[in-house]
């Protein structure tokens, strides 16, 4: 992944079983956790973890099949707990070892409606497309 700090990219392709060990190694070397990305690709999820030290960024990347339980890095980097919980809400990922597990409810109180934001966004997307189509037709018809 490119970044705006430097032209160099430090990226390591790992497997899921190496995630915690590699993260611990980075923590021991003074890195901190910045951000995590999830890309959906067919039956798999690609996960990208970004760590920073001074103004350098280093990346860990791996692919897992949907439904695979992912080890949490929140015991190493406490600040990962919000993003990991967010990923549970938005992508249905499941983490094991989360220091605080909201159970897919980070963004929703327990007594709120069942639908997660992901499907709510899906509804919005189709609505927006519908509105755009309507607007285009109206434009063409003058």
């Amino acid at each position: 992944m490119l970044h705006n700090q430097t032209n160099e990219t430090k990226e390591t392709q790992i497997t899921i079983d190496k995630l915690v060990a590699e993260t611990q190694k980075l923590a021991d070397n003074g890195y901190r956790f910045i951000i995590m990305d999830v890309f959906e690709s067919g039956e798999n999820f690609e996960l990208i973890y970004e760590y920073g030290k001074d103004y350098d960024v280093t990346t860990l990347r791996f692919t897992v099949a949907k439904g695979t339980e992912i080890p949490s890095i929140s015991p190493i980097f406490f600040n990962a707990l919000l993003i990991e919980n967010e990923n549970q809400d938005l992508y249905g990922l499941k983490y094991k070892g989360l220091v605080v597990d909201f159970g897919g409810r980070l963004y929703m109180a327990v007594d709120e409606v069942e639908a997660p934001p992901q499907s709510m966004a899906g509804i919005n997307v189709s609505l927006v497309k519908k509105w755009n189509k309507k607007a285009d037709t109206a434009k063409k018809e003058g």
Binding site: M1, L2, H3, N4, Q5, I34, I35, I48, V57
Partner: peptide, 8 residues
């Protein structure tokens, strides 16, 4: 096209 991380 591609992937990028930006910090401001």
């Amino acid at each position: 096209e591609g992937e990028v991380l930006v910090q401001v």
